[in-house]
Write a protein that binds this DNA or RNA. Structure first.
Lengths: 231, 231
DNA sequence: GGAAACCAAATCGTCATACTTTTGGGGCGT
DNA sequence: ACGCCCCAAAAGTATGACGATTTGGTTTCC
């Protein structure tokens, strides 16, 4: 899954540094400088830079250097960019963006899932809803989180839309971050759990309207809670 | 904007070939083979492959070669991937995915725009709505398309959400493709025009509810039309 | 005869180096 | 002060050498 080798390691240094603004927009790097700074060869530097160029985070220009592009140019849907921004100073902004995206996408995905989910997927959703209820009662936050992530990923996947499905990991990253930084009640709210059960039941029953509405309540609630926490 | 140089040219060959399935999932390429086939050096091949690896379309493995990853792994939000898929055999599937995404995102963006748009953005939306009306009456399809793209991009941008804003180009690609392949009535429908005006007016008036509803009607209509055309 | 250990080839990964191409800026002349 | 020309700096490309790793066959030992 990760990019391998030395370019991958370079990327793991440069990416977060740029994403966090530590290397600001408009800054100019030189290939040779990076070679020295990280003790790698030109080949490695160039390949890492090429990947960043692919994400539109930098643009190499002859006679000038490797310039950091404005944030508005970045591929903000790239999973790596999202992860880097979540890890750094941009975390609040990134969480807000993702919150709105979830409000837009997840209800739609739930509606589609109610129509197109396979039998296996419906079964899995039911099972996950049960698990959620159990682990919430036991206040087992870690497994609760795991099942919550799986639940949302399964809905997105069951929508049958490949683009929605790909947001599964991203939503997972949001939920993980929310728990890690204690932006969540320590005890999952019974009301939220109940809504998850409703989503699962509605999807199983093929009730798109209800699935969409219940899911919307979940993600709107999450967004409001987020806005409250972030001021 | 495009990736430059020889790696860019290689990418412009390999990317579409993979996206269209001409080079199928699971296929194994060798670096040396690519060097010969395209008459470029290792350096160039490796950098192009790195970029494809960044998009999760290929994964180089020692002693094996460069294997084409399953479609489900690809970064389906990468603008290049989207463009390549729109240009090739995957066009119908890609259009469907994007259609659903638009239905999810654009109404939400319109609602946010009604709350957060700047005065300039509101003015621009009004102007574009007028332009749309004019060019539709004149049956000037080309400029109509340009203004339509600008309209949707402006709404997405005015939402204030960077991720929504980035979908502007993608939506533009969809609208362009729809016109190019004659999946659209030759004369823009007066009803659709009227809805665009409604969206602009609602956003200017700060009426989120109305803006969202009108935009939803637009994108749902587009999706239905698409499904009809694609069977 | 079978299984485990071993070896060899293939391929990517990295490094070093040389040459080419582009381009920004300084110097020169008007 | 203005414009032209030239040079140097940086990325772009090519190539040769070596290292690392994985695969798959082969040998060897029970």
């Amino acid at each position: 899954m990760e990019i391998q080798g030395l370019p991958g390691r370079l990327l793991a240094e440069l990416g977060p540094a740029i994403a966090s603004g530590e290397i600001p927009e408009g800054a100019v790097l030189r290939g040779e400088e990076l070679e020295e700074r990280f003790g790698v060869s030109r080949t490695v530097v160039r390949e890492a830079v090429r990947i960043l160029e692919g994400m539109r985070m930098v643009a190499p220009r002859r006679r000038v250097g490797i310039t950091v592009q404005p944030k508005s140019d970045w591929d903000v849907f790239d999973p790596l960019v999202i992860r880097w921004r979540l890890a750094g100073a941009d975390r609040p902004a990134q969480l807000r963006s993702l919150g709105s995206l979830r409000v837009a996408v997840e209800p739609a995905a739930a509606a589609l899932a109610a129509r197109h989910a396979s039998d296996d997927e419906r079964r899995e959703l039911s099972a996950l809803a049960v698990e959620l209820t159990m682990t919430a009662r036991a206040a087992d936050l870690e497994t609760f989180l795991r099942h919550d992530i799986a639940f949302h990923a399964t809905v997105l996947k069951a929508s049958g839309n490949e683009m929605f499905a790909h947001l599964g990991d991203t939503v997972g990253a949001v939920l993980t971050g929310r728990t890690e930084y204690h932006l969540m009640p320590h005890q999952p709210e019974p009301y939220a759990i109940r809504l998850h059960r409703e989503v699962a039941e509605a999807i199983c029953a093929g009730d798109a309207e209800h699935a969409e509405q219940a899911m919307r309540t979940i993600v709107v609630g999450a967004l409001e809670e987020l806005n409250q926490q972030l001021g």
